[in-house]
Simulated assay, not measured.
Amino acid sequence: MRIIIPLLGGVALLAVAPTADAQVSPELKAQCGSCHALEKPANPTVDRLWSRKGPDLWYAGDKFNKPWLVNWLQKPTPIRPGGVLWFNHAKPGEPRDTLDTASVPKHPSFDTATATKMADALMTLKSGLVAPDLFKPEGANPQMGKLAFTKLRGCVACHQSAPGEGGLSGPQLYDAGARLQPSYVFAYTQDPQKFDRYIWMPRLTLSDQDLTRITAYVTSLGKEGAQ
């Protein structure tokens, strides 16, 4: 298994009119604000990326499907096998992709009522970077997307499409069909640096056809009959 930290990408490809920032509730700040950015950083830095405790949530309403959020907050399971920064949990003296998973901090769990309230609040957080109908599923070919993901575009170097199959430097994607909104997958894959200028996921300058295929494949994962 290999882990690759690619070079940074560059210029945005998708222009979506920005929306006003949602007001972050005091309750959400109290529960999540110590580990996650709930508002878009005014001046993001490399140091912020290396020091954050959890992934940014200021675009959670663009990213997640609410039913998944409600369930996950009650029974959290690892999304990033090595935590936010995998190398912090690499076992000394062993290959860099050998992780001490026991050292990865556990996410707290919540009761149903609290999880539902938190999910409602998170779904109000929008970036203005994702048009809801950006992904057009008509004619999308998930099998061609699988070929692009696993062989042609190198996504599998950083992401797992099935447990134990793929890299560890990015979040696993084998439940992406339940977790992620298709238009978010399309927009983020198209230009990750639009969301964070220093994030290490590369902008690959993919065609719309490639983006559609990859999005169709990724958002099929975890669904019944997915290959």
Rank of each mutant, 00 (worst) to 15 (best):
I4L: 15
L7C: 09
L7A: 15
G9T: 02
A12K: 13
A12C: 12
A12H: 07
A17P: 07
P18V: 02
D21L: 12
A22Q: 10
A22R: 08
V24Y: 05
V24Q: 03
L28V: 08
C32H: 03
E39P: 04
P41V: 09
A42N: 08
P44E: 05
R48I: 04
R48D: 09
W50L: 15
R52Q: 15
R52W: 02
K53M: 09
K53W: 10
G54H: 10
L57Y: 08
A60I: 04
G61D: 06
D62K: 02
D62S: 02
N65Y: 03
K66P: 11
K66R: 13
W68V: 10
K75D: 11
K75L: 11
K75F: 11
P81C: 08
G82E: 00
G82Y: 00
G83D: 00
L85Y: 07
A90K: 07
A90L: 04
K91H: 06
P95A: 15
L99W: 05
T101M: 05
S103M: 03
V104A: 09
P105R: 06
K106F: 01
D111W: 04
T114L: 13
T116K: 12
K117F: 01
L122W: 05
T124R: 13
T124W: 04
L125Y: 05
K126P: 09
S127H: 08
G128I: 03
L129P: 00
D133C: 02
L134S: 03
L147S: 14
L147V: 15
L152P: 13
C158K: 11
C158G: 11
S161L: 09
G164Q: 00
G167S: 12
Q172A: 15
L180D: 07
P182F: 05
P182H: 07
S183W: 00
F186M: 10
K194N: 10
F195I: 08
I199C: 11
W200N: 14
T205V: 11
L206Q: 09
L211P: 06
I214V: 15
S220K: 00
L221R: 03
K223S: 01
K223N: 03
Q227F: 13
